[in-house]
Design a protein around this nucleic acid. Structure first.
Lengths: 234, 234
DNA sequence: CGCGGCTTTGATGTTCATCAAGTAAAGTGG
DNA sequence: CCACTTTACTTGATGAACATCAAAGCCGCG
């Protein structure tokens, strides 16, 4: 769930309430080691966290806010692969396999990230067997998730895709049927592989049918069960 | 490259010439441990290696042949996610994150697989830090690859997809511009998200244009540079 | 105040899936 | 090994879904 926290950026990892469960298997000494090799920074809306092609020096972790992962297709069109929530890792897929970032990561709202030195992370994986198993599990899960999600999008018609996007925002990101979209129509289109025009067209359709209320970026889902049905049947 | 080997199924892993580089960081004792907890079996063409939903008990590794990973969409349509070559791991994505297989794996030709007990693998990851880093790297790479491939397919028109498929078979799987397809037209369609009718239509088009020779399953690429161009521009 | 980008709606065209029908190939049982 | 059945392959015709093009209204920002 996307929430706004007030965080003391200087605190140690030991008692950090924003820590991922991934670090639960580290003991106090190991957490201190991570703490000494990390850096917590605020990122303004629109600012770039990682740029595709830049060398990977850190293992980046989202504490607060929302960021998008995007990829530039050969035709120059941008595609949004995923949107990360707090406690998600950023650039995880490339981080252990490549020397440079695969995706460009940009903050959609004012955000806070932790940057852990990548060599320190590697060391930790080598030293702590349970930790390495947990990371392995985590990476596999994320990959599975992205692959499943990508296939889901491509097997749906346009109405089904928009329905899926709206339900995901309501359920996964905001925990409410009423929310403000953190992205433009064009970005919505980039997330679900369609044109901005058709995003708008179908939103208008849903509005006419009384399924949602749309006023600019503000969305209110009026008929969630019907929307879910459109997602599943599309 | 897909080759036919003659393998002694009973030999130890220690001197195995079919071993993945992934195991290079294991010492003799560890290789013996793996050997005692593995099983090498032949799989007939068309036979199922792993079935979606079955509990994961083994870490499966392709020694010889070709296998397809497939997924059943909600509409009941099958989709082929990837085709594994010798020295590839099978079901790798789910293996550390799930209790049961995500994909059904079927042999496309007579094949040979090694099945390593999953608990033994976990133990190895916990014990050997370098090995766990290598596995992490390997899994990340495969995931990256699948995601990149999936996006590539969906951003191309039908001609581009067929071109991509043919070039991949020639380059990655057979190392020759002349080869016999190990899959049916229907399976080709399942690989690149189109209908069997259109697969045939476009193959015929390519034949008329003198780009390929098609006789049933036998393919001969006559104009590789043009085919690559169609792939890149599609 | 005016410019440029984002949003919205309508009209048009292309691409691809679906349907139909026929041919070739590959199993299957006697 | 041959008749029979089933499955795979192939081509054409049609229609639906979606992208593209065009034009106008809206909003934020210098």
């Amino acid at each position: 769930m996307y929430k706004t926290y007030i965080m003391d950026l200087s605190q140690s990892c030991k008692n950090c309430q924003f820590r991922s469960h991934l670090f639960d298997k580290l003991n106090q000494e190991e957490l201190d080691f991570i703490h000494r090799n990390k850096q917590t920074t605020a990122v303004k809306k629109g600012a770039i966290v990682n740029k595709s092609g830049d060398p990977i020096r850190e293992f980046v972790y989202l504490v607060e806010g929302l960021v998008k992962f995007q990829k530039i297709g050969k035709n120059g069109k941008e595609q949004i692969v995923s949107i990360a929530r707090p406690l998600d890792f950023v650039g995880l897929l490339s981080v252990f396999s490549k020397d440079s970032y695969e995706y460009t990561v940009t903050a959609l709202v004012d955000s806070v990230v932790c940057r852990i030195d990548i060599e320190s992370m590697r060391k930790m994986v080598q030293m702590n067997g349970q930790f390495s198993l947990d990371i392995l599990k985590y990476i596999s899960n994320i990959s599975d998730e992205i692959i499943r999600h990508t296939y889901a999008i491509n097997s749906k018609n346009l109405r089904g895709r928009i329905a899926m996007l709206l339900v995901d925002f309501a359920d996964k990101y905001f925990g409410s049927t009423s929310f403000d979209l953190p992205i433009s129509r064009k970005e919505m289109a980039e997330m679900i592989d369609m044109t901005p025009e058709n995003v708008i067209r179908i939103l208008s359709e849903f509005r006419r049918d009384g399924i949602v209320n749309v006023r600019g970026k503000h969305i209110e889902i009026l008929n969630m069960s019907l929307l879910s049905k459109i997602r599943d049947l599309g």
